[in-house]
């Protein structure tokens, strides 16, 4: 119980860090902290496989991607001065939502589950057991995940592998070449720029 409270506190602090820290890098690292405490919770909830995935895929791969993009784009949060009322509204909504969800969870009148039974049924949430569900009950979903990942790939490639912005995109290579030559010949002539632009 004490461990839970401690870890819960850590995860909440990490979450608050995501929301409050100014530097994106710090916020991302705070999120990694929260993700790791969640992995511990997964272990206590008999989901060992998911805990491993959480550390390797989420805290590892996905967050590294995030950090990479943050570094690449050199994002710095400029502090939002505008619309303080929205900020307070958001805080209010957040507190209300949290209160509602806590009440919803704690007011659940159902009996506390039997740990022994849970442990026996989940068998540590091992990969084999998950695979059995994944490839039978969730088979359609599993196939759809494949479609989804392909879609994401096509989308990402389409986004990034694009011809250069249209000032150049619409001009064929020869036309541009010709235009450039002409322009070099008679610098600053407006008609030539026009012709090149077509």
């Amino acid at each position: 119980m004490v461990t839970f409270a401690l870890l819960a506190a850590v995860s909440v602090v990490g979450a608050l860090g995501v929301v409050l820290l100014r530097q994106p890098i710090h916020a991302a690292l705070a999120l990694v902290g929260t993700l790791l405490t969640l992995a511990v919770f997964f272990v206590t909830l008999q989901a060992h496989f998911l805990a491993a995935i959480q550390v390797i895929v989420y805290a590892g791969a996905i967050m590294v991607l995030f950090l990479f993009v943050i570094m690449l784009l050199n994002v710095e949060e400029q502090h939002a001065g505008a619309r303080p009322w929205l900020r307070w509204l958001a805080y209010g909504v957040g507190v209300l939502a949290a209160a509602g969800l806590i009440v919803g969870a704690l007011a659940d009148p159902r009996q506390i589950p039997d740990p022994a039974l849970a442990r026996a049924a989940l068998r540590g949430g091992n990969a084999g057991l998950i695979a059995e569900v994944l490839f039978v009950d969730f088979m359609l979903a599993f196939q759809l995940v494949g479609v989804l990942l392909l879609t994401a790939m096509v989308g990402a490639v389409a986004l990034v592998q694009r011809p250069q912005p249209p000032s150049a995109g619409a001009i064929s290579a020869e036309a541009r070449e010709a235009g450039l030559k002409e322009r070099r010949g008679r610098p600053g002539s407006p008609e030539v720029v026009e012709a090149g632009g077509r």
Binding site: V12, A15, E77, Q78, L89, G94
Partner: peptide, 19 residues
Amino acid sequence: ALSGVLFSIGAVGVLTRRS
């Protein structure tokens, strides 16, 4: 309940952060 708290904090982040 903990997940509810984390979720709400995340939602507040979406609504308040600007980048």
